[in-house]
Design a binder for these strands. Structure first.
Lengths: 200, 200
DNA sequence: AGATCCACCGAGCGAGCGTTCGGTAGGGAG
DNA sequence: CTCCCTACCGAACGCTCGCTCGGTGGATCT
């Protein structure tokens, strides 16, 4: 990864790439191990040589997804410096961008929480909460600095996250608007949501 | 249904209520017919006496969900009269309320589209599009009347719908804030999203 | 009383599931 | 040349899946 704004195709081992496609299409329980193996160009035992279970494919995929998301968020914040508005915008842009360029991964992660078995689900939810905390903090900082006027920072942050995560449910790379255009518009919505009003 | 604002517990036949709980918990493919039958207090053949297949349970449930959603939206709009702001607010309030009081149904509908088989999926998507069109029209009308200032009505409407539908993923009836409080806050966010500025 | 229908169930069918057993082919180390 | 490790695979195991067969018992009608 060169910077948090640059996205190549996801770098996933063949079995995880295969699992990703299948899970995105039919869901975890709707996908068979045989289908994943076929998509990965392996036999079923060949697949099991690399991953010990179907569940481990979901976990491996989810871990790669969340660590990339958190890494990019951290990089965006680091680059933004100290200004609360710049930090907020960098974080939201990164979140939007991730949910476009890593749409399938983000979608599978958020829709298959209930398919993760207990212990790992707690780990995954921890990652999600960490990401939500970044957004909460960015909004709180803006309110503290007086640049955001929302009376309900926590609810605004949640609405905002919901909006960004939701991008992975409707965004299509072949849609009428390009990523940069969509990001600009949704970033504008984000500013309105937290009550940012540019200095006169 | 007395009015679009009033919600009792959902009125579902026992098999659909059982399927709803199970689908919400494990997803469609993660749920077995035996589990649904047990929750409904029936044997497996007893369940099949009322519904011819597992798929028909999902379809029956989804149809009841969408017809209630569309009926309530229509009632809210009818009651609101001609004023664009009133119509917009009634529609959004109804949408938010539905996704709180019919949270599980809305959640299952939106997450199990990929589990609906082809023909019915088209029907379901038609219902979804009809609902989205109501929101689009309400925003467009506000822009046309000059009360909303957003330069991107269609994107704002989509962001708004995403936010409302997302309520079904995080709302918990036993959370710290009651439904009316949450609706008031999210309604305020909705107004900011479309660029409503109260007349001075 | 018999006939008919509805609501329901015990048992089990064939198919397909996640997973495993017991291998094989090839390459690098000693 | 042997030994061992990695990367795989054909076949099949035990189980559970969605679904069905062939009923039973009770209410209603004639």
């Amino acid at each position: 990864m060169t910077t948090w704004r640059d996205y190549g195709p996801p770098e996933l081992p063949a079995p995880l790439a295969a699992a990703l496609e299948a899970f995105a299409e039919h869901g975890y329980h709707g996908t068979t191990v045989r289908e994943i193996a076929a998509r990965a160009g392996l036999s079923v035992p060949g697949l099991y040589h690399h991953y010990p279970s179907k569940q481990s494919l979901l976990q491996g995929l989810s871990e790669l997804t969340m660590s990339e998301l958190l890494d990019r968020s951290a990089a965006a914040l680091a680059e933004a410096g100290d200004d609360p508005l710049a930090r907020f915008e960098a974080l939201v842009e990164s979140l939007l961008r991730f949910h476009m360029y890593r749409r399938e991964q983000a979608f599978v992660g958020s829709t298959e929480i209930r398919s993760m078995d207990g212990d790992y689900r707690a780990v995954y939810v921890g990652h999600r909460d960490a990401q939500q905390r970044l957004v909460d903090e960015a909004v709180d900082a803006g309110v503290a600095a007086g640049v955001f006027t929302t009376p309900y920072p926590k609810d605004a942050a949640r609405a905002l996250t919901t909006m960004c995560v939701g991008v992975s449910t409707w965004y299509r790379p072949d849609g009428p608007l390009g990523p940069d255009e969509l990001i600009a518009r949704n970033l504008a919505f984000a500013r309105e949501l937290v009550g940012y009003t540019p200095p006169a």
